[in-house]
Design a protein around this nucleic acid. Structure first.
Length: 320
DNA sequence: AATTGCTACAACCGCAAGTCC
DNA sequence: GGGACTTGCGGTTGTAGCAAT
């Protein structure tokens, strides 16, 4: 008996998500929270069953909704997770990446390489996928354009001939890493970094080269160490000279081990350095209301108390 | 108007770490 | 301790939309 596949690919929807699927997924996660992705599609289908309890719904509309939804969310759990994390999450920032963000991405990329999740962790509201796409479509070209000499313009590099595990971006050699989870950054603080008195950071703002007082950080005694999961230190990152971190152009990141082994503990990091404020309950509430007020024909026929459905879903056994 | 080429980005895939039993 | 399972990650692919021809 081998390992169960991630999900049966037969009978599953693929490709772009519909607005309806988004709403089912959002409502499910609103009720149950994130996680259990594997079982989500099935239970998201179950989600529709309590609809039958609402006699105030127009019966034809109710039948239509049940017909559309009762078959379940025909998506792989993995696909659900990706859709939620990269698109539906309430704290996602949409819109163009600002110049500041772009500079930060470039610097962090020089420091961390293709560790998109780590880079995304320093850009509130941005997803690793978004940053990865932005890098691959926009920043690679910019970096190449900056470093390409007239001679190399006449002989553009043949990407297909590059080693598969490496790529050249600008004058930097980027080592392509295998996918590995980065869960730990160990941060030891001799003294907490002080924010500038004159320009306190706003909510949702994280230290960046532009909003952080470099001088004050330089005076602090912060050290950032990359460690393996077992705690073995790989590279002490002494921020007594924080300018190295903030001006990563000049920082030559080196690990005594393969970069694949780097792990970063965001929780520990955030304990010591003010974390960006996460999505507020207010935003979640707004998202929930958005769904209720969304342009589905549902609202035309009845007012559906989704809060009641959510609480109903909390019950293990449904009354039918 | 039709075709082609390019770009941006959403979605998929395989792998590996972490967790559970 | 080991196998099954879940989750997270980075690389890659597919495709919608737009511009150029």
């Amino acid at each position: 008996m081998g390992r169960r596949p991630c999900c049966s690919k037969e009978g599953l929807n693929r490709g772009a998500w519909t607005a309806l699927e988004d709403k089912i997924l959002t409502a499910y996660i609103k009720a149950h929270g994130e996680g259990k992705w594997r079982n989500l599609p099935k239970r998201a289908g179950d989600f529709t069953r309590p609809f039958s309890l609402f006699s105030s719904l127009d019966s034809v509309m109710l039948m239509l909704i049940c017909f559309m939804l009762c078959l379940g969310l025909k998506r792989c759990g993995k696909s659900c997770r990706l859709r939620w994390l990269n698109y539906l999450r309430p704290d996602i920032k949409r819109g163009n990446i600002s110049v500041d963000e772009e500079e930060l991405i470039i610097r962090l990329h020089k420091l961390l390489g293709n560790r998109w999740s780590l880079i995304a962790g320093r850009l509130p509201g941005r997803t690793d996928n978004e940053i990865k796409n932005y890098w691959n479509t926009t920043l690679v070209k910019k970096a190449n354009a900056q470093s390409t000499s007239p001679q190399s313009k006449t002989n553009p590099p043949n990407r297909s001939k590059q080693p598969k595990n490496s790529a050249t971006v600008g004058h930097h050699q980027v080592i392509r890493t295998k996918a590995s989870r980065c869960t730990k950054v160990m941060v030891s603080l001799g003294s907490r970094p002080q924010r500038p008195q004159t320009q306190p950071l706003k909510l949702n703002e994280v230290p960046t080269p532009t909003n952080l007082n470099t001088t004050q950080l330089q005076q602090s005694d912060v050290s950032l160490a990359f460690r393996r999961g077992n705690g073995q230190e790989l590279q002490a990152f002494d921020e007594r000279d924080t300018s190295q971190f903030l001006n990563i152009d000049s920082y030559n990141f080196q690990s005594r081990n393969r970069p694949d082994d780097l792990q970063v503990d965001h929780d520990e990091y955030n304990k010591n350095v003010d974390a960006p404020v996460r999505a507020t309950n207010l935003e979640e509430e707004q998202m929930f209301n958005d769904w209720i007020n969304a342009g589905t024909s549902l609202e035309d026929n009845a007012t559906l108390d989704l809060e009641a459905i959510a609480s109903l879903l909390e019950a293990e056994d449904w009354p039918y």
